[in-house]
Amino acid sequence: MLDDRARMEAAKKEKVEQILAEFQLQEEDLKKVMRRMQKEMDRGLRLETHEEASVKMLPTYVRSTPEGSEVGDFLSLDLGGTNFRVMLVKVGEGEEGQWSVKTKHQMYSIPEDAMTGTAEMLFDYISECISDFLDKHQMKHKKLPLGFTFSFPVRHEDIDKGILLNWTKGFKASGAEGNNVVGLLRDAIKRRGDFEMDVVAMVNDTVATMISCYYEDHQCEVGMIVGTGCNACYMEEMQNVELVEGDEGRMCVNTEWGAFGDSGELDEFLLEYDRLVDESSANPGQQLYEKLIGGKYMGELVRLVLLRLVDENLLFHGEASEQLRTRGAFETRFVSQVESDTGDRKQIYNILSTLGLRPSTTDCDIVRRACESVSTRAAHMCSAGLAGVINRMRESRSEDVMRITVGVDGSVYKLHPSFKERFHASVRRLTPSCEITFIESEEGSGRGAALVSAVACKKACMLGQ
């Protein structure tokens, strides 16, 4: 009897593995994704193909990295998701002549009506938060230079001027797309009239992360975010950046690689679950690469896999709870928690219980395998993109072996128990001629924006502006 049951459990697990095998990517698959990513990057950089390229390769006008001589107080704003952060950054000489960066910050959550109302409502709310922060720190009387981390696709015309191309991540505030974001912020500050600010720089969160990590390690020339969304930036040779005049030196390019796949480059790798996630998203047909990796989508992918296993009578005796059938019910943090389970399955059992399920031991094991399959594919897909960037940098610099540091931020990278190990191992397999160091950014977005502002202020002083 026991043997029969054991055989049935083994057969069930084997069927589960057959279904989950769809998520496995072979090294040849990853090399294919990497080569296609490089081709799209090239198209994004070139003037004649930029418009139709899915990977936009947006110039950021960040050319210099901090040298350690900029000092002063800077205000930093960070808008990239449902939370908005205001930070005071003091850049100065530390002990023994070292450079020191001290920060104080406060988080504000953005109400739904500000995210989806008008641009005026959104930026009025942001300036209200700045006003509140300055009151708390008794700094209303000071006109501070301000660095703005704005983590949406922007076409820069200068370091302090950028046109919002399109909202992502659930934002829909009308009247912002096609307009200068810094102008919208300046107008809102003017409307309030109770404080003055000098907006000197606007950067993407990947750029802010790279600059913040450069402060720790001067070989950091790539910034990457794996959180709600997924994106990367890197220092490109100016001669390859056709959208900006000049051939000397390097400029940081914001790849906006989340949109890779929007022209069909990933079609052969998309599964039924991916198509369902895409169809029910706020932007169907867009940001397809990001939807395979980002935390906004990972939990939902797992939920759809679990429903398939229920329908195949391989999980929960073929019956799903009402909660499990509800879109968004299986949160991405559950994926991390399930994979963090120590082996007694308590954590998995508790999560499934909150979803109205009474799982068996085998159910718990199957749910864990589903989570591992989805998150491992995410790590491997992400590795193909980064390997594409790094191999490109090595080739354009004609280096036999390139040493490089990548600064990384984002909740999936930082909080998932195995993502970074799987990701690092896969990147290294795909970049055999590179020695890569990964560092995690601390308060990256805010500190990085302030350091970019410090560079901009120093330049302005040198130019006598």
Rank of each mutant, 00 (worst) to 15 (best):
V222T: 02
I189W: 10
G227Y: 00
L75S: 01
V241G: 00
F195G: 03
G227K: 02
G72M: 00
S441M: 07
E440I: 07
V305Q: 01
A329P: 03
N350S: 00
L77W: 05
A259G: 07
A384M: 09
S151L: 10
S151W: 15
R46D: 12
E248G: 03
I293A: 13
G178I: 15
S281N: 15
D135I: 08
D205V: 01
Q138W: 05
G328H: 02
V181G: 07
E421Q: 12
L75T: 01
Y297F: 13
G170N: 09
F316S: 13
D344T: 02
V203I: 03
P284L: 11
Y234W: 01
R345I: 08
V200M: 05
D78G: 05
F423W: 04
G162S: 10
Q26G: 11
L288H: 12
C252D: 00
Q219L: 07
D217N: 03
G94F: 07
Q219W: 05
S411Y: 05
D278A: 06
R327Y: 10
G407Y: 01
G97I: 05
V401E: 09
D187E: 09
G97C: 07
E265D: 09
G448T: 12
K140D: 04
S336V: 09
R43W: 04
V241L: 05
E440H: 14
V455P: 01
H105E: 06
V244A: 15
H424C: 14
K39Y: 07
F133E: 06
Q337S: 09
H424N: 04
L288A: 14
R333W: 05
A378T: 11
W167L: 14
G223E: 00
P66G: 14
M8N: 08
F133L: 04
D135V: 04
L25W: 08
S445V: 12
L270I: 05
I130R: 01
N83L: 08
L79G: 09
D73E: 01
E319N: 13
R5V: 08
T65D: 14
S54A: 09
K291G: 14
I126T: 11
G147L: 02
M115D: 07
K346I: 05
F152Y: 14
G81W: 15
P145S: 06
G258D: 15
E265G: 02
D274L: 02
G446H: 15
I159D: 07
K136T: 08
